[in-house]
């Protein structure tokens, strides 16, 4: 069982003249969850994207390791599990086909993802383009957990969920943390979490 650890220090990012992240730091140890809060525009999504390796930083360091071996940005990008509002899938393929495709790309079996979607009660033969927003969110969770990621980066993870969906998603998150995984959660719809180890508030 790998022991992942995430550390980031003095992360900075600006867009043109707008300085969105001005030196953000933090550490997440195995089994821990970091909660990132702040008003709109305070850089929560930006931070998560930088941590995922989807966005380059203008300064600072991000260090992620599994089992003691540090992973570079490219490897980190493929290792993390991401849920984000702008994560989209191929509308012309069914849910199952989407999952199978990404599973093949990652060289894993789609079983885990299908399992998750089963728990979230998502019909597998529906075209991804025909999903409601709540169901799309369930697909995102399936995608994020597909490859047994050790680090979950969740941006508005319960967005569009009904009560049942949110409950199951919280279970999934708890199971992940219990198994020693890491999670960084931004913009939660409610601040009611159990094992928040660190609370990072980007509010000004």
């Amino acid at each position: 069982m790998s022991a992942p650890r995430l550390q980031f220090a003095d992360v900075r990012r600006h867009f043109g003249r707008l300085s969105v992240l001005q030196g953000v730091s933090g550490t997440v140890d195995p089994g821990e969850m970091m909660l990132v809060t702040g008003p709109n525009g305070s850089g929560k999504s930006t931070l998560l994207r930088c941590l995922a390796g989807l966005l380059a930083t203008d300064g600072g360091t991000i260090a992620y390791q599994e089992n003691g071996t540090p992973l570079d940005a490219a490897e980190r990008r493929r290792r993390v599990g991401v849920v984000a509002p702008d994560l989209a899938f191929y509308a012309e393929l069914t849910v199952e086909e989407n999952l199978a495709f990404f599973a093949k790309l990652r060289r894993v079996s789609p079983a885990r993802g299908l399992d998750v979607l089963g728990r979230l009660a998502l019909p597998l033969d529906r075209l991804a383009g025909n999903l409601s927003s709540g169901m799309r969110q369930r697909l995102r969770w399936g995608f994020a957990l597909l490859h047994s990621a050790r680090l979950l980066l969740l941006d508005e993870p319960f967005q569009n969920f009904d009560a049942a969906g949110e409950r199951i998603a919280r279970e999934l998150l708890d199971e992940h943390l219990a198994a020693g995984g890491l999670a960084v959660v931004a913009n939660p719809s409610s601040l009611d979490f159990q094992h928040v180890a660190t609370h990072l508030d980007l509010g000004r």
Binding site: L54, R78, Y90
Partner: peptide, 15 residues
């Protein structure tokens, strides 16, 4: 269609 994000997270560039 914003599927690029999912691709970036899943695929190796060469593939």
């Amino acid at each position: 269609t914003q599927t690029a994000m999912a691709l970036r997270l899943s695929a190796t560039p060469s593939a």
